[in-house]
Design a protein around this nucleic acid. Structure first.
Length: 328
DNA sequence: AAACGTCACAACCGCTCCATT
DNA sequence: TAATGGAGCGGTTGTGACGTT
């Protein structure tokens, strides 16, 4: 059974808002508030608009303290850092930039910032550019640099409940030297400023049934399906029995990545599967995010050197926001 | 000056999440 | 426990402004 439409599409106005409509909406909300019900609001306010449209108009344009105009360098930096960290979670990124809306940031990223970053560096020679993605940048892209950049022999993985972010400035950097997992979960952007602070306990991925399992079974409650399992199917023909993580030779490896998340009843809610080197080709790879990560990484180069920056991963669950961060 | 292309931004669409019943 | 519906989110599209030929 399909969902009922949120409004009568035939009787709602679409397209740009007129000044009169803006005034009506603004005055109504300032007088009565939204009442927590956007669907009913347009009728009460005398607007022939969909409730969702009203909400968007208010949040992105009419709301007080909305900042329009040029983004500052500092804002650029924050956006880039967070994008490389959490991907296109525009609402979360917007939460770090007072006065900016997610839509604003999204547009700014797509139209300007991405190009600006790309322009900062020439495209490297193909042979040096990047290893096969791990996992595919096109899906849950954050994980990809885990593989790309990982040339040391271990990962550190912890999971913590994700409760939200604090303003960057509110976290004293010295605190990052302690209790890093808590801080990272509260404020992933903060530890970007101090990546060295995350050098602490090491958890080795366990190898089981030809899969590297990050996080391990002990940290993952399979019964509630709330965990992420990142599995690397090890191709022993290509790996030659060497430690996967310690190998810097990507080109000849054949691997398959599987993300299983929220599995319930044998069916994954979210998942990506990837094979490379012509084995599968299910996923069209997109390297844009990888390029961006390279560009904004303070230690990065395009010449194949080891990148020791830290990465933070947030799982796709919004019911149990978790932060998984890896450093190596 | 007109035609065409590109860019930036506002708005829409469709999906997921989650509270309520 | 399942169904329902509103809120919120991210991706995409539409359109006007601007630049180039």
């Amino acid at each position: 059974m399909g969902r009922a439409p949120c409004c009568d599409k035939a009787n709602v106005k679409k397209g740009p808002w007129s000044p009169e409509e803006d005034t009506k909406l603004k005055e109504y909300i300032e007088k009565y508030g939204t009442g927590g019900n956007w669907i009913a609001l347009p009728q009460k306010a005398g607007l022939k608009r969909c409730g969702k449209s009203c909400r968007l108009r208010w949040l992105n344009y009419l709301r007080p303290n909305i900042k329009h105009g040029e983004f500052t360098d500092e804002e650029d930096r924050i956006i880039c850092s967070l994008f490389a960290t959490i991907g296109s979670r525009w609402s979360i990124i917007a939460a770090q930039l007072p006065g900016r809306t997610d839509n604003d940031i999204k547009n700014y990223w797509n139209t300007k910032l991405k190009k600006k970053l790309m322009a900062m560096s020439a495209t490297p020679p193909q042979s040096q550019r990047k290893p096969p993605p791990f996992p595919p940048a096109s899906s849950e892209s954050l994980f990809s640099s885990l593989y790309k950049d990982c040339t040391t022999s271990y990962y550190n993985i912890t999971t913590k409940p994700f409760t939200g972010f604090e303003p960057i400035s509110s976290v004293h950097q010295s605190n990052l030297l302690h209790n890093t997992s808590t801080l990272a979960s509260n404020n992933p952007s903060s530890f970007l400023q101090n990546p060295e602070s995350l050098m602490s306990p090491v958890y080795y991925p366990c190898v089981k049934d030809n899969f590297l399992i990050f996080g391990g079974e002990t940290s993952c409650s399979s019964s509630d399906g709330s965990c992420i399992q990142i599995k690397q199917e090890v191709d022993h023909h290509h790996m030659g029995g060497t430690n996967f993580a310690s190998s810097g030779a990507y080109e000849d490896q054949t691997y398959k990545f599987m993300l299983s998340y929220g599995s319930s009843g044998g069916e994954n809610v979210n998942r990506w599967n990837e094979k490379v080197n012509g084995y599968c080709g299910e996923t069209q790879l997109d390297y844009d995010l990888e390029d961006v990560k390279q560009l904004i990484s303070p230690s990065s180069t395009f010449n194949g050197s080891i990148n020791t920056s830290n990465l933070l991963f947030i799982d796709e669950s919004k019911t149990q926001e978790k932060v998984m961060y890896y450093h190596y």
